[in-house]
Simulated assay, not measured.
Amino acid sequence: MSGETTGYDAARTEELEGREGIRKRPGMWVGSTGERGLHEMVFQVVGRAMNNALAGQGGGSVDVTLTRDGGVRISDNGPVTAARDTGGTGLEAPLTSMPAEIEVGGPIVYMGHGRTSGELYLANVLSSRLTAEVRCGGTRRVQAYARGVATAPPAAMGSAAGSGTTVTFWPDTEIFETTRCSFAVLAERLRQVAFLNRGLGLSLTDERAAGGARAVSFRFPDGVRDFVEALDAEAGPVFQPDVISFEREDPRMAGTMEVALLWGGSHQERIRSFANSRATRQGGTHVDGFRDGVAAVVTAYARARGLPDAVGGSWADGIGEGLTAVVSVKLEHPEYHGATRELLGNPEVQDCVAEAVREHLGNWLRDRPTQAAQLLDGILRNVPQD
C-alpha cells in the first residue's frame, strides 16, 4: 500500500469504531443475516437513491441491477453539486460515518420531509467491497471501499453526461448467510414503492440468469390511486366505480398524507397502510384516523337523509365490507410501537388523517348525489340487521 493511501486511511481511524460494532451485530441494523437482512440492506440503498431522484425536476428514476458477479448496482439520475464543489464524490460522509440522528431500522425510502438515514454507511460496512460513483459538472468521479474503509481518495475517471450517483456493492459472505438476492422479492417491493411515490421510475434488471438478462420497470403517474385500482382489479362489480383520492400536507404532523379508496364488489376489507413507504402491517394512528373519517362521513350522510340508524358497531362493520384503500403518510419524525416497526404511533396523525378524510370524502358524496346514493345503498345492504 502506498504512503499516500496509508495516510488517507490513517486520517480516518475513528471510522473503525462504529464499523466493527456493526459487523459484530449486523442483525441490529438490517434485521438478520439471512435473505431478509440482505434485502433490507438493498432497500436502504434504494431509498437513498430515491431521495436523490425525487429531488430533481420530474423524470426521476432509479435503476437496480443484480450483476453477474454477485453485486448490486443502484443508480439514480438526481441532482448533484457537492462533487463539483469539493473535488470529492459528495458521498464520503454518508459512506464513512453514521448520521447523528440515525433511527435503527428507520425509514428506508423517500420521506418527503427531511431524511434520517444510515443506509450508505451500513451497506458499505456490511459489504466486502463498494464503489461509489458521482456524475456532476461533466465529470465522473469514483471512490472504492473495502468493508467500510476507503482504499484510496476520490479520483476523476473521465467525462460524464447528466448528473446522478451509482453505488455498487458486494454483500459480504462473512456477514450474510446468502448473498444472492431474490429477483421476485425485489421486483414486488419496487412495484409497491413505485405506487407510493407518484411518477418515479423504478427498474430491476437481473444479469445473473443463464438464459439472458430479465428486467421489469414500474412508473405510476397516479400513485396510490393506481395502487387501489390494481388491488381491486380482480374484484366483482363495484358499488362506486370511481376511486376517491387526495393528497394533503399538514404541518401538525410534520408530513404529508396520500389516501385512495374504493368500495368494490368483494366481501373483504382491504386496507394497505404505509409510513414513509414502509408497510405498517399492524396499522397505527394513520389507519385509525382513516377509519374514523370514513365512519363519520358515511354515518352523517345517512342520518341527514333519514336513513336507518347509523350508529353502533354493526354500522362500522358494514362500512368496511368491500372497501379497498391505501393510506400512506410520509413523516419527518415517525414513531413506532414494537420491535417490528409495523405499527405507527404518532398521536397527532390520527386527527389529521380523520379530518382530511371527512373533508374530501364528504365533498365527493355531496358533489355526486346519484353515485353517493348508490354507494350508500350498497353499504346499507352489508349492515347486519338486529
Score class of each variant (00 low, 15 high):
3 G>C: 12
5 T>I: 14
6 T>C: 10
7 G>F: 07
7 G>H: 05
9 D>C: 11
9 D>P: 05
15 E>C: 06
16 L>I: 14
20 E>P: 01
20 E>F: 14
23 R>W: 07
23 R>L: 13
23 R>Y: 06
30 V>C: 10
33 T>M: 15
34 G>N: 12
35 E>Y: 05
38 L>D: 06
40 E>R: 11
42 V>M: 07
46 V>F: 05
49 A>F: 04
51 N>C: 04
59 G>Y: 01
60 G>L: 02
61 S>D: 05
73 R>G: 00
74 I>M: 03
75 S>T: 09
76 D>A: 05
78 G>W: 06
79 P>R: 09
79 P>Y: 07
81 T>M: 08
94 P>V: 09
97 S>K: 09
99 P>N: 07
105 G>F: 13
105 G>M: 10
111 M>C: 15
111 M>F: 03
114 G>R: 05
117 S>T: 14
120 L>K: 03
121 Y>T: 02
122 L>G: 05
123 A>W: 06
125 V>N: 07
127 S>F: 08
128 S>R: 12
130 L>H: 03
131 T>K: 11
132 A>E: 03
136 C>E: 15
136 C>G: 14
140 R>I: 09
145 Y>E: 00
146 A>Q: 11
152 A>F: 06
153 P>V: 06
167 V>D: 00
168 T>I: 11
170 W>L: 10
173 T>N: 15
177 E>W: 13
177 E>Q: 13
190 L>F: 07
191 R>I: 04
196 L>H: 08
208 R>E: 10
212 G>Q: 03
213 A>T: 07
214 R>Q: 05
216 V>E: 00
218 F>K: 02
218 F>G: 03
220 F>T: 02
222 D>W: 03
223 G>Y: 03
227 F>V: 06
228 V>G: 03
228 V>S: 00
229 E>H: 03
229 E>P: 01
233 A>E: 12
235 A>M: 12
245 S>A: 13
245 S>N: 07
248 R>P: 01
249 E>M: 15
253 M>D: 08
254 A>E: 14
255 G>W: 08
258 E>L: 12
259 V>P: 00
262 L>Y: 02
263 W>S: 04
270 R>K: 08
272 R>M: 04
277 S>P: 00
280 T>Q: 00
282 Q>G: 02
282 Q>C: 00
284 G>R: 05
286 H>V: 03
287 V>F: 09
287 V>H: 08
287 V>P: 00
289 G>R: 09
294 V>G: 00
296 A>T: 11
296 A>Y: 04
296 A>M: 13
299 T>K: 15
300 A>Q: 09
301 Y>I: 08
302 A>K: 11
302 A>G: 05
303 R>A: 15
306 G>K: 11
309 D>I: 06
309 D>G: 13
315 W>K: 07
318 G>L: 09
318 G>I: 12
321 E>I: 14
328 S>I: 00
330 K>R: 15
334 P>M: 06
335 E>W: 12
343 L>G: 02
348 E>C: 12
349 V>W: 13
351 D>L: 13
352 C>K: 14
354 A>C: 07
355 E>I: 07
358 R>E: 09
361 L>M: 10
361 L>K: 05
368 R>L: 08
371 Q>T: 04
372 A>V: 01
373 A>F: 06
380 L>I: 04
380 L>G: 00
382 N>K: 14
382 N>T: 12
